[in-house]
Amino acid sequence: MDTEALEKLVMGLEAQCRKREQADRAAVDVPVSALEPLMRKLRNEDPLSFDLLLDHTAIDHIHEGLFEMVYLLYSTRHGHHLMVTCEIPRMDSIAPTLSDLWPIAHWQEREVFDLFGIGYDGHPDLRRLFLEDGWKGYPLRKGYTDPDMLEPA
């Protein structure tokens, strides 16, 4: 189904769901408290049935003091894409885990935790993924400085 119909259908599922502007596909934005129920409905209900969580990542809006979490969903049955975004504050950033809905979320959330420092409530195994366990700081945050990062002159 096309972008507007999809967005309308998704926004009808949750009261606090709004349209996300400036995206190149159907995109909605939810507050973090409504994220998990919405995702559950997106996976289970039939005209949607998003069974493939393509990707989960985060964007650091340092000037607004937010992390924006981005979930890219795809349905292999119907062939439509959806982008779900969710904003959480930069201090004390905690989000619910989706690893019981899509098992791949376990792995993707560990990457976001490793690089951004976003904690996932209820995650079975929250550990650093790429960096050593003792690494200080979260590299992909915008204010991250490291004496080892070399800048060209």
Binding site: P139, D148, L150
Partner: peptide
């Protein structure tokens, strides 16, 4: 990866 990389050994 010489510039801007935080984890590489140069």
């Amino acid at each position: 990866f010489m510039y801007h990389s935080y984890s590489i050994v140069r």
